[in-house]
Design a protein around this nucleic acid. Structure first.
Length: 468
DNA sequence: AAAAAAG
């Protein structure tokens, strides 16, 4: 679990209890340390505190073993053989009983980056679906195509022996309305995709919501945000509400904000909740640094001399920028000097995007420049370094720090408790000010690399991060 | 004046 902190959790979101809520004391439920086996890569020796608020009077136990969850043999085989899991991770052990126990309450679950949120809701979908019923019964909505594809891959792997089929609701090729109209209705049990395509399939009556049992919002805060996909999400959920008897809603993300709480109080009332403190969210497994750069040229020089030269063989790196233009310009500047890296952003073609991600996931590309397209959810365990070439800012004026995006970007490194380093390249006064805000907000000190030219300083930083 | 999805 991506967490090293044992601070107790303060009250989170207690104000929106619509009915008497029973708070579970997680301490009394935690697994006996001596009986706990080490998961494949997950380091759970220092468990985080997870705050749970349950609704109604259903009692939930934690699942110490997958066998405790009444899963089908086929699904268990997928977990052990394909996924190579030995036992549920912490978030899984708490959330899965909540997802799988009647009356199948809604769930809002916050968990660390790289702690296995995806496996939670994928397992939830696979086990709630009836393989014999040839109709869509589970729907998962994601903010990007890349994330939808990634989730589908996990689903197919985990569900390999179940016979459950899935449908990818993303615009992979040029889909004209005429072509959609001519297609038969979807009979696959699980549908994963992006809002536009899902809406379209629904309006063409190709995606029936009549048998829908479970609806998942991945990166839920983004899916429900005003400047995100709020309108689409609301329409989809209303459509489902109208046609199906009862559909369980799962909201998963590492970050949650006020918009989600509004949604929760109006739509997903009467649900269970899991929360962790913001200070505990992933920012202590990856080591953060700020690099003082006198000007923009120095930033590029740091990428060339330090990131490429010193760190290229330490794993993979994602360099985040704030705009497509910035991505293209940085790529040109590096390419002009013969440095090889790839770049991804939303104005590339579907196929280009797909190929670039595929190449990076195969490990053939070491360094990838990206917009916030890949800020959330992108899971590549070899990513050891994240570079914020630009710091993430909110688009409204005055442009303030975007804490959520900062956290999500950092979460691309240090997957499943692995080591990682984040380098924030700072040049202007505004950037220094923003950085200070990030430090204050997450209550952690970010070490400064004052001499951007010093190899020794960078080597020391990489060593401190556990990468050398 | 932005990223994302789509039209």
């Amino acid at each position: 679990m991506a967490d090293n902190n044992n601070k107790p959790i303060s009250s989170t979101c207690e104000e929106k209890s619509h009915e008497p809520n029973d708070e579970l004391n997680i301490d009394s439920l935690t697994i006996d340390e001596s009986k706990k086996k080490t998961n494949r890569v997950l380091d759970e020796t220092k468990d985080s505190e997870i705050k749970t608020v349950t609704s109604g009077d259903t009692l939930y136990s934690t699942a110490l073993k997958f066998e405790d969850l009444n899963l089908s043999e086929d699904l268990l085989k997928g977990l052990y053989v394909e996924m190579e899991f030995s036992h549920p991770s912490k978030i899984q052990s708490i959330s899965l009983p909540m997802i799988l126990t009647p009356p199948y309450k809604h769930l809002i679950a916050q968990a660390h980056n790289g702690s296995g949120k995806t496996t939670c809701f994928v397992l939830g979908m696979l086990s709630r679906v009836d393989p014999k019923l040839k109709a869509p019964q589970a729907l998962c909505i994601c903010p990007t195509r890349e994330l939808a594809i990634q989730n589908l891959e996990v689903l197919m792997k985990m569900g390999k022996y179940t016979g459950i089929t899935s449908y990818s609701a993303i615009p992979l090729y040029k889909t004209h309305d005429l072509q959609i109209a001519k297609r038969p209705p979807i009979t696959d049990q699980v549908v994963i995709g992006t809002p536009g395509t899902i809406k379209k399939l629904m309006s063409f009556k190709k995606l029936s919501t009549r048998e829908m049992k479970i609806l998942v919002f991945d990166e839920a805060d983004n899916m429900l945000a005003e400047d995100g996909f709020k309108a689409d999400s609301w329409r989809i959920i209303k459509d489902i509400e109208r046609s199906s008897v009862y559909c369980q809603v799962l909201l998963f993300s590492a970050t949650f904000n006020e918009t989600v709480k509004d949604f929760v109080s109006r739509v997903v009332t009467d649900g269970n909740q899991l929360f962790v403190k913001k200070e505990e969210l992933s920012l202590d497994v990856v080591k953060q640094y700020k690099v003082n750069c006198p000007d923009e040229l120095a930033k590029i020089q740091v990428i060339k001399d330090k990131i490429f030269e010193l760190a290229e063989n330490l794993g993979q790196t994602i360099i985040f920028v704030n705009s497509r233009k910035s991505a293209i310009e940085l790529h040109k500047a590096l390419e002009g000097d013969g440095w090889e890296c790839s770049t991804i952003h939303g104005s590339l073609s579907d196929d280009q995007r797909y190929q670039i991600v595929k190449q990076f996931k195969s490990g053939r590309t070491k360094i990838l420049i990206s917009t916030d397209l890949l800020a959330r959810g992108f899971d590549q365990s070899q990513v050891t370094m994240v570079v914020n070439y630009d710091l993430p800012v909110k688009w409204d004026t005055p442009r303030g720090p975007d804490y959520e995006v900062y956290l999500h970007r950092c979460g691309r490194a240090g997957r499943f408790g692995r080591r990682g380093a984040v380098f924030n390249l700072l040049c202007t006064d505004r950037e220094h000010m923003l950085m200070q805000k990030f430090e204050e907000h997450f209550e952690n000190h970010v070490v400064e690399i004052s001499d951007w030219k010093s190899d020794d300083d960078f080597n020391a930083a990489l060593k401190a991060a556990g990468l050398l």
